[in-house]
Design a protein around this nucleic acid. Structure first.
Length: 461
RNA sequence: GGCGAGUUGGCGGAGUGGUUACGCAGCGGAUUGCAAAUCCGUGUACAGGAGUUCGAUUCUCCUACUCGCCUCCA
């Protein structure tokens, strides 16, 4: 069996991956807070961990992998969005969740699944696990790892000696550098909220500490335990979550007596044209914006896969264009073929800490060798190809036979008279329309650009 | 200030203790009426310094620079 090697943030080393149970390999990835469209950066962890999910399914079998990704549907940003828009929270979270799934499906991400369970249980909504969160908080309070104060419940960070191990910082350093306004009810500035009170307008649930809502960190700890058990294999997310989110998850779960995750994986951030994406720089856009502009999801995925997940990735128009050209070529090449197992070399590359770029390089080679089956298998493994070639890459059906004949006739005449003026005129005009003109001994061949509808041809004939 | 990741040819981007991939662009050639497409060929780049070593781009340390995180942003 292929040995997968993964970089573990916890140990800062690339390690052989040994699942707790090869019968059910379990992975948890932090999902979105559903208050708005997913921006392009949100797609990176989704694509990265989708790739890992596909690799795990390939190595251990599709029925032997459990992958959970949550939706955070209780959050102050959602509350704020509801207040400013006048819409209900339920409406906003339902719509945003739908958008998220559509956008991620467009970039080839499989939906998570849980071995032996209903499919949608693998994508838990935080609000469906409030009872589990309350139970976990009660447990932490009973073990003295948490305390109630003024309607809040706070995690006592000093009670967990290992706090900071994942992100490599000491509690004292954190306090020294913290720009935190310390709430008066906190025993220690580093303590974080497990539960907070809700007023009448804010969503809330009854609890031993009064009506309130959970803090963000406890959600993932509770849902991971409920769905994957108290010890599982891989926990993933963007590297901006390493601290404090993942550090806090570890503290909560470990103190509750769970083994929690063995391997921690973090993807690097995404930049746009060399700069951090932000609304103030005007380079902020959503996945949906790109899709609406006609950028195919496969092209977006290709660009993401062309940089290793642990390196910063830059989204540029140049990369987008190049990705489209390459994919169009490959898709044309593998069209009509049957999908077979991916080349072992492709699997090995991916197994080496997800060397997706290496697999793309291999695809270039397979394409050059015209190894259609290998190329197709590799593309399927990468999630760049399903059963059929995407519509945008299918050779355009626009019939140019008449034009080909017309040009061919003119060319035959020109060959005799040695006067190529008319042929050149036609060629130039066709090229201006975006049509690719190929002339050889065998005759004339024309290729219409994507979406060509014949407009402008009357001026040529 | 602390912590983390990164720095490879014109651009993108892999990888390796000892001849550095691959893609794009460029250049040369084949082919073509000319092109396009295709094919062939072509590039002495590994941030700087010190150390370990017979030998380092690859390991260690230091410096510089870039990016991210430091209470809820993937």
């Amino acid at each position: 069996m292929t040995t997968i090697r993964l970089h573990n943030t916890r140990t800062r080393k690339r390690e052989d991956f040994v699942p707790i149970s090869a019968d059910d390999v379990r992975m948890y990835v932090c999902g979105p807070t559903v208050y708005d469209r997913a921006h392009i950066g949100n797609a990176r962890p989704v694509i990265v961990f989708d790739l890992l999910y596909r690799l795990l399914r390939h190595v251990y079998g599709p029925g032997h992998v459990s992958y959970v990704r949550n939706f955070t549907d209780v959050d102050d940003k959602i509350n704020a969005r509801a207040a400013e828009s006048g819409r209900s929270i339920g409406e906003i979270t339902a719509e945003t969740t739908r958008w998220f799934l559509q956008d991620m499906a467009a970039v080839g991400a499989l939906e998570p699944s849980l071995k032996g369970a209903e499919h949608d249980r693998a994508m838990p909504r935080a609000t469906a696990y409030i009872d589990e969160m309350i139970a976990m908080i009660q447990d932490l309070v009973s073990k003295d790892h948490a305390y109630a104060a003024e309607g809040h419940v706070l995690f006592r960070v000093r009670s967990y000696a290992e706090y900071g191990a994942l992100s490599g910082r000491s509690v004292d350093d954190m306090i020294a550098g913290a720009r935190v306004e310390v709430a008066p009810y906190k025993e220690d500035p580093m303590d974080f909220v497990l539960w907070k009170p809700s007023d009448a307008e804010t969503p809330g649930w009854d609890s031993p500490w009064g009506r309130g809502r959970p803090g963000w960190h406890i959600e993932c700890s509770a849902m991971a335990e409920a769905l994957l058990g108290d010890t599982f294999d891989i926990h993933g997310g963007g590297n901006d979550l390493t601290f404090p989110h993942h550090e806090n998850e570890i503290a909560q779960s470990k103190c509750a007596g769970h083994g929690f995750a063995n391997v921690w994986m973090h993807n690097e951030m995404l930049q746009v044209e060399g700069r951090k994406m932000s609304k103030s720089l005007g380079n902020f856009f959503t996945l949906n914006d790109l899709l609406e502009q006609g950028v195919p999801g496969e092209v977006i995925r290709f660009v993401f896969l062309s940089t290793h997940y642990r390196k910063p990735m830059d989204w540029t128009d140049k990369k987008r264009d190049e990705a489209e050209r390459v994919l169009r070529k490959w898709y044309t090449q593998v069209a009509g073929d049957e999908t077979t197992a991916p080349p072992a070399e492709a699997v090995d590359l991916l197994a080496d800490d997800l060397n997706s770029h290496g697999v793309l390089t291999l695809c270039h080679r397979l394409s050059g060798e015209n190894d259609v089956a290998g190329l197709r298998g590799a593309l399927v493994l990468l999630g760049l190809l399903d059963d059929k070639i995407p519509d945008w890459a299918v050779e355009q059906a626009y019939d140019l036979t008449d034009v080909e004949a017309f040009l061919s006739d003119a060319r035959v005449t020109a060959m005799e008279t040695k006067d190529f003026a008319e042929v050149d005129r036609i060629k130039t005009a066709l090229t201006a329309l975006g049509i690719e003109v190929q002339m050889s001994k065998d005759g004339v061949k024309l290729k219409a650009p994507p979406g060509f509808d014949g407009t402008g041809l009357e001026g040529v004939l």
